[in-house]
């Protein structure tokens, strides 16, 4: 099973009005390592043609990227109002 199939079993209540994590593209552009792409367990960070692509919709709110990014690009907040990942078992 690949990671996309695994994420597909999850229940998200996505908040279209509030991306709880944002990255600063100008920092990511010059990033030498893009460690976020390896660390994030939900593959929210990918490189497309060498450019960093981030999607908050698949985020499971673990906080890994906040630790992983050593360049200060990741701004991390919690989703608001019960939205975001909704684990059934935990």
């Amino acid at each position: 099973m690949n990671i996309e199939e695994k994420l597909a079993v999850l229940n998200y209540k996505t908040d279209p009005t509030y991306p709880h994590i944002t990255v600063n593209p100008s920092i990511c552009e010059t990033c030498p390592d893009h460690f976020c792409t390896f660390a994030c367990p939900a593959r929210c960070y990918t490189l497309i043609d060498g450019k960093l692509n981030f999607k908050y919709e698949d985020c499971v709110e673990c906080g890994t990227c906040f630790v992983a990014c050593s360049h200060g690009s990741v701004k991390w907040t919690n989703p608001k109002g019960g939205q975001g990942i909704k684990y059934k078992l935990g």
Binding site: M1, I3, K6, F38, C40, A42
Partner: peptide, 17 residues
Amino acid sequence: IFDLRKDNSTYSFDIME
């Protein structure tokens, strides 16, 4: 995380798999 960063070629989710 420290060694995963040093390696910078292994995906965390692949370790799970």
